[in-house]
Design a protein around this nucleic acid. Structure first.
Lengths: 331, 331
DNA sequence: ATAACATATGCTCAACGAGAGTATATGACA
DNA sequence: TGTCATATACTCTCGTTGAGCATATGTTAT
């Protein structure tokens, strides 16, 4: 455990207003998600190696409203849903400057992008960063080819037998190896295990400090990297969203005004990274009265035309918090 | 929606390290919980009107480890479990100084206090702050006597008929009035509704700015007040903990080394604020192998002596994340 | 000593919801 | 006209959950 300097441990610490200002900078980092043609995407900048972020200015009534206004002005996208993710302040985040930076990260959902335009902002599929998280067609080949042997080696490298077993068990549990089922919510824990096992570049320390040997071993590490700890923030956002869609009707913030039930299902599957049982999905959607028919139909791919539905916004008032279930089979 | 100043909306906002330092101060606020003799308690300072807090110093490896070390040094209590709650930065938090303060709040669990000693730190039952949240003996009298009429009046005061219905529905849903069952997790939403209805003093704005008329009406408002938004932070912590105990074995962080199953049940009931069906509780505890017998027994109050149990710490490794259920009947 | 009582511990049952499989309807397309 | 792909509907089984009841084993009062 890190020792604290003396000022932090003096008895009877004072309150907010009396604390000495010390030049801490605060940043907002946004994980903006949309789902286009069945692929979950995230807004990136800097050659797709960073999440959009900006300094926290003082004009905002609150962090949340500030982020919402900032994003909507930047991207011209209406933000349907915004939620705070986590606040980071690792000492290493600041890089070489030594300046201490607090990063407050947010998750935001938006419709299929109309025209984000300008700047270097680009949407990119989030499975480009986490290829092992897409289990819609079963476990991806990457799992057996790269991750499983790598994790086995990591487990065997532990000091004693007990530690080896613990490592093996942890890896099996997180990646669903033996008997253990795949739990799509453990995105962050999997990510952290992978860099603990040095199968992907570490995130909290600056990338530039990696030794040459490590860099060589990681040259073909799975998944696209990001600067600083942005990839970890993205993992946090994915995990939160995958948990959220199960009991809160946020999926609809990602859908167009009207949609077919299959489109809705594909969207959920894209987010969850796993397939969903179609009859059960429809049953839950309809018996909870989450949607209403528009009366029109859509003929997409050939086959019987599907009814078009619209989200019943009334449910947000009826059970604003009470809860709503989506059938993504748990562990 | 709040407008933003120009610097925040310039295209292509830069990243953390390049943002201009602007004298923002960061504070850590802790919600420290323990359960003593069947009552959930929270550590307070300043005549029990504030949560312990202190400035965020730069020596910490991370926010979490910083908070943990700080609390353990201040209170000499070992922290079993620490979790980040939320980060606030409302403009009004700073009070009259105009200084912008970010508050990062944490939830921490500790054993029954051995000796916290010194300073003005004191444990206080959390239902002193939220008397309407204790439903262990059914809905508290306060509900019918004060809250229900107050909320009815608030609903009737809405502009048009639709708004009145919406308000009534929201109140009924949150407080479990007609047909709606009591959902113990909605602590924060209930708190926010109560001050929206002006049944308790507002929290985000400084208390000192309340008008005399408002202050008179609130003079016997239910529940003990706190400074700034500390009561809201406490509500956030209670809500988080009530949700967490259902699927993660954190209750044991609040228990002594050995305990009877009834003691464990009383602890869960104290946190959840509602009773639990005894046979079902035992069934779930034992079939999940969360505990093991010590071999000894305890005779507390007269009656058949109860077996003493101990938490099987091994489960933390076995299903570190996978989950564990406690039977607190949902909505 | 014995009855009354309080708590611990164990068993059973009914209702519900989740997971999974199967069958039918309706359109497009060759 | 037949084949195909998708939409839509129905059924069944199993595990979980909520709730009630029965029994065991002590203490305390008479």
């Amino acid at each position: 455990m890190d020792p604290l300097d003396s000022s932090a441990s003096k008895p009877n610490a004072r309150l907010a207003a009396q604390s000495s200002p010390q030049g801490i900078a605060a940043d907002l980092v946004a994980v903006l998600v949309s789902v286009t043609s069945g692929e979950p995407r995230v807004l990136t900048i800097q050659d797709q190696r960073a999440l959009p972020s900006g300094p926290f200015e003082l004009a905002h009534r609150s962090l949340q409203s500030g982020l919402r206004a900032w994003v909507e002005r930047q991207t011209r996208l209406p933000l349907g849903y915004v939620e705070q993710l986590y606040t980071f302040a690792d000492r290493d985040r600041a890089g070489s400057t030594g300046q201490h930076v607090i990063s407050i990260s947010y998750l935001g959902l938006t419709r299929e992008q109309p025209a984000f335009g300008e700047h270097e902002a680009r949407w990119r599929g989030w499975y480009d960063y986490f290829p092992w998280e897409d289990h819609r067609d079963g476990p991806p080949p990457l799992m057996e080819k790269a991750l499983q042997p790598g994790l086995k080696a990591w487990a065997s490298a532990a000091s004693d037998r007990a530690a080896q077993r613990a490592r093996r068990q942890r890896a099996a549990m997180l990646f669903g190896f033996e008997e253990h089922g795949w739990n799509e919510e453990l995105v962050l824990q999997r990510y952290e295990l992978l860099y603990e096992a040095k199968l992907i570049p570490e995130a909290t320390r600056g990338n530039s400090t990696a030794s040459t040997s490590t860099r060589a071993a990681l040259s073909n590490a799975p998944g696209h990297p990001m600067i600083l700890d942005h990839r970890r923030i993205l993992a946090t956002g994915i995990a939160r969203l995958r948990a959220k869609i199960k009991y809160h009707p946020v999926v609809f913030e990602l859908m167009p005004d009207t949609f077919t039930l299959l489109q809705l299902q594909r969207c959920v599957e894209a987010l969850a990274g796993r397939q969903v049982h179609k009859p059960n999905f429809r049953r839950l959607i309809e018996q909870q009265e989450l949607v209403e028919e528009t009366g029109e139909t859509s003929q997409d791919t050939g086959g019987r035309p599907a009814k078009l539905f619209r989200f019943r916004r009334a449910v947000l008032a009826e059970r604003a918090i009470a809860g709503t279930k989506l059938p993504v089979s748990g562990a």
